[in-house]
Design a protein around this nucleic acid. Structure first.
Lengths: 259, 259
DNA sequence: ATACAGCATTCTGAATTCAGAATTCAACCG
DNA sequence: CGGTTGAATTCTGAATTCAGAATGCTGTAT
């Protein structure tokens, strides 16, 4: 009898993905250092193949960017980018909180306070990793309460990026003060089943977080380079009008042939 | 002098990605047919390598799912999933439209009408591909006007999924009627610099689109299987407390060695 | 006749190899 | 002495090859 859906050993690609993401988050790989597939493969003890695929995924998730010359580099922490991220989070977190208040106030009541407690404990512990983890956990708890699994899915890559930014800021001192009060207020509105209040509080919370984070990181990272359109042309824009949907056109017909 | 950011020939992976996505969108590959890498490679005239990477991306974008046995299959079109998608789009498109009205009314005035015209032409042409493309183009135009490049980035994978759903519905007859009137209304609000009106209209538009799309597809695809948590465990949830950040652990130490 | 064991087939993940493009560096020409 | 051209180097994208796992088929024993 075959065991359905059980993956005891994550594929190498996934392991490489996680390993690289962790190292990036922890600030290895200096600001714009290029990532050499062969070096990474060497360092991780695998071949270039899974590394290449993991890099492809990391790029598609916005963690890496095409380097000007060749290859990939860590996407620089750009305050402007963080601002854009928070703008979206303001909308999405607002939606999540409103939905949570509408759909799962009971779950919020029974399981929410634990998150708050853990968050305050994390702040007391002064462990940066723990503070970030607690913050993420609380917000993903709300995403879960929303009843819309896509909210967590959409937000996940944003958090992998914000994680980096938060880490950067927190090591520069300046721990957050009121964020767990705000979290508690949001939770209270959810528990009381007040979607509008929950949404408003969530949006305000994101605004505060955004402002303080950007204020902290602005001086640290100059980023004088104007925002280059971040790679990856979109599927639709390649073909301005109608797309010649692959009705039969095969490519690579003239591959590698000298004239 | 090196030419910066010019990619005259998209990489094979991207071509394969697009080709497969088109075929999937057009409904080739029956409901739960497995995708054999070798067959696809053969059919496209490339090796398995780019196919494998394209499949990996398609999976990470939710178009494909792990098949029970081995390999991948097309993710079934799930009305519930579409509902969730539109819920997010309601928030994000609202944000985009409000921002557009605030930040780029002039661009909207100069370039917007062309999109409307093209959209109406597409409807007249009765070409499904063209209608979908025009719809996407209009919305991505709005995303562009918003001044927040992340909005397009976030929405892109959703659209690759919705494209399939729309195709499915459109081939079943039932062309949309009023959507270009609604688009025009949104555009007008943007041009006149009225963020609140633009946001409201955009949200209503998404609600209408959602309702009609779901109504059409509901009977077609039963999907009796309850919503399985769609793969890809998240980085944070793997480690409940503090994450054991890959501080030195290397893997594959015992790879392929018989006992 | 049915159930189980073992073997052949099929397909994927990963390693290795190959070819092309970009960068770099050095020699040559102005 | 500065600029340009050409070759060497480096690194990537893609093809090919290899090994392991799952599936399914066949033969045999009960």
């Amino acid at each position: 009898m075959p065991i359905r859906s059980l993956s005891p050993q994550p594929t190498l690609v996934e392991q490489v993905y996680e390993a690289l993401l962790s190292e990036i988050t922890e600030g290895k790989f200096g600001a714009e250092q290029r990532l050499i597939q062969e070096e990474l493969a060497e360092g991780l003890g695998v071949s270039r193949q899974p590394v290449q695929q993991a890099l492809l995924l990391l790029r598609s998730h916005g963690v890496l960017r095409d380097a000007p010359g060749r290859g990939l580099m860590v996407a620089p922490l750009d305050p402007e980018h963080v601002r854009d991220l928070y703008e979206i989070r303001r909308a999405v977190d607002g939606l999540a909180s409103a939905n949570a208040a509408e759909r799962s106030p009971d779950l919020a009541r029974s399981e929410g306070p634990a998150f708050i407690a853990r968050g305050r404990a994390a702040v007391r512990s002064k462990s940066i990793a723990r503070m970030i983890a607690a913050d993420m956990d609380f917000h993903f708890f709300l995403y879960g309460l929303s009843g819309n699994p896509l909210i967590a899915e959409v937000s996940e890559p944003h958090w992998t990026y914000l994680r980096r930014a938060m880490g950067e800021v927190l090591v520069h001192g300046n721990a957050p003060s009121g964020i767990w009060d705000e979290h508690e207020a949001i939770l209270a509105a959810v528990i009381e089943g007040q979607p509008q209040a929950a949404e408003r509080l969530a949006r305000e919370h994101v605004s505060h977080a955004s402002a303080s984070l950007i204020a902290e990181m602005a001086p640290a990272e100059p980023v004088q380079r104007r925002a280059v359109s971040r790679g990856r042309r979109t599927a639709h824009s390649d073909s301005p009008g109608v797309d010649a949907t692959a009705s039969g056109r095969r490519f690579s017909q003239g591959r590698r042939t000298k004239p």
